[in-house]
Nucleic acid binder design. Sequence first.
DNA 1: CAAATAGTGTCTCTAAGACAATATCAC
DNA 2: GTGATATTGTCTTAGAGACACTATTTG
Lengths: 273, 273
Amino acid sequence: MKKQQSESEYLSQYDIGKYPRPSVTADIVAFVIRSVENENYKMDSVSKLSILLVKRAVHPFRDCWALPGGFLRPDETVENCALREVTEEAGITPVSLMPVGVFSEPGRDPRGWVISHAFASIISEESVRQVGGDDASDAEWFDIRFERGEDGNSCLSLEYGDTKLRAVLREEETHFSQTSFRVLESGGLAFDHARIIATALTALREGARNYETLFDFLPERFTLTELQKVQETIMNIQVLPANFRRKVSDYVVETDEYTQGAGHRPAKLYRRK
Amino acid sequence: MKKQQSESEYLSQYDIGKYPRPSVTADIVAFVIRSVENENYKMDSVSKLSILLVKRAVHPFRDCWALPGGFLRPDETVENCALREVTEEAGITPVSLMPVGVFSEPGRDPRGWVISHAFASIISEESVRQVGGDDASDAEWFDIRFERGEDGNSCLSLEYGDTKLRAVLREEETHFSQTSFRVLESGGLAFDHARIIATALTALREGARNYETLFDFLPERFTLTELQKVQETIMNIQVLPANFRRKVSDYVVETDEYTQGAGHRPAKLYRRK
DNA sequence: CAAATAGTGTCTCTAAGACAATATCAC
DNA sequence: GTGATATTGTCTTAGAGACACTATTTG
């Protein structure tokens, strides 16, 4: 009869390499809302939702655009890995991450067995402005649009200057209201990143309904109209200011500061509750 | 100057092993609702929420109870791996899986670098009954309770016969209404499985609010009272039947069948819409 | 004052919660 | 009939959406 091993004996002989292991990555969909200045000094600016994409310099998918991301290291969590990667690529450390999903389909990466952990991060416009022109990098902010077409497919449009990417996806209902997408045309995006972006934007929109994903787009103090415009930009809807103010009042605290010099009545500044 | 490689050349020389790789597992919190028969033939039975735990036969955490799970294989997704493992352990293939989270803290597994993908699965009582006494296995269904105490900590109680496990956790708020828990006492549960169970139950309860996670506990045809009792059991609340029926009516379709021989008025059977 | 945004008041309609009342079976 | 659950109706209240109206700034 075999002698019983102690735990330390067992662990010292344990070979964790006896099972095959995948490479593990974290990929980040970093969102920002940028305002486009208006010609009329009185009128408010228009806002656009953008995400960060990186042009791949190496195979596979060389010269395609991809999400920032990288391989997990042994001393970090997947969340830490995502933060590290977005800091390296964008020069900005986001305050928070939202898990989007795990993408582990065999064959999703031509290099081999790679499973990706996708996160959405929200970055305020002011922090992007501070970093400004990191021209050495080939990371760029793409305006993003995502709409369901009349044929039941959804179209994901990404635009930066003259570069236009256009992916087509099919929404597939899964259990538990997790919306999942299948890529029909990836439109110049690397790997399954069109699918990841669509999933991340869906999660962002879901979180915008209850105001959760709005505040990180703005500085600490903001006006209610700014907050409303964030929600409208993300969800691609219009709401009446009076109703928005009433509903959001539970989530904000007013300060005693006001905006200045806007050409119209000053607005009270609020903080998140 | 170095010659440009073609993609196939690049991939053939690519060594995916140059970065360290973790072991990857899927762990499953399999929920079932079991009814305890009543002495009075007229009165409805009481229901209890249970999860499947496996007694570990090997180090580490030998003789502790753990979630069913296992290592990811190269030809499957993490969802497939979870389905395969729960089928092996419980003899039941659940109809659906709900992603709960990724647990990748360094040091969470004494054997080495292991990151776990946790899923919740919902199993109907009838399919458990069909499998019945798989006595050879050391997998058992534990009644589960999870309540916030007066000191702000939450107590997770698991009970099977005379075996009682009792873990204490602290709820830590994170961004985006993702509730996260820290384990204060793991109460005989292996690894960080107390944390995973608490997270899974929180997700199950959240899904029970909008009826998403209710139907899989029941057979295809069910009464509205049965459905109501599922919600009450999961969320640990009481609701008025009239209001429950009104709200849930959007999610169900009535059939032309009725219950029989219950000692009181028969109930119409419904299907999920 | 004109233009533009900031902010308030209120009307209507819907949905949720509470609760009363009726229906129907097995015994 | 009795005891249990099934099912319907309605009262009240809270909240969402629509919209009219007032307030305040810069040029």
